[in-house]
Design a protein around this nucleic acid. Structure first.
Length: 103
DNA sequence: AGGTTGACAAAGG
DNA sequence: GCCTTTGCCAACC
């Protein structure tokens, strides 16, 4: 099978329940690739997908600016809807919301 | 086959 | 806390 790298990333993403997030590095570590690759997979994500891409933030707990532009604002809005609280700096506390894949 | 680009991470200033 | 540099790896030209 050669289902690819990207599908593995999407699979893991679907495991994350509402109210939790993960980082690019954590995903990369689980799959065995690098954070850059995960970011690339997000960019390659098609539109009508069932993947909760909005639950992925960078290691600072901050939403990475996309090349697309305003998309990051949309992501923040969705996260707030799901119950995630942002600090004054526009960051979230990973200690509270980070999802642990190894169980 | 080589060089550039990215929704990154880690370390340093 | 902000910005810069370095390392990383896959996709694209």
């Amino acid at each position: 099978m050669g289902e690819k790298l990207y599908d593995q990333i999407y699979q893991l993403l679907r495991q994350i329940p509402v109210g939790h997030v993960t980082t690019y590095g954590a995903l990369a570590n689980q799959i065995g690739c690098t954070a850059r690759t995960v970011g690339f997979a997000m960019a390659a994500l098609p539109k009508g997908n069932d993947v909760p891409w909005h639950r992925v933030v960078n290691y600072q707990g901050r939403i990475s600016p996309r090349s697309n532009g305003h998309g990051s604002l949309v992501q923040k809005k969705i996260l707030i809807t799901e119950g995630i609280v942002f600090n004054a700096d526009g960051r979230i506390d990973l200690k509270l919301y980070a999802w642990n894949f190894m169980r």
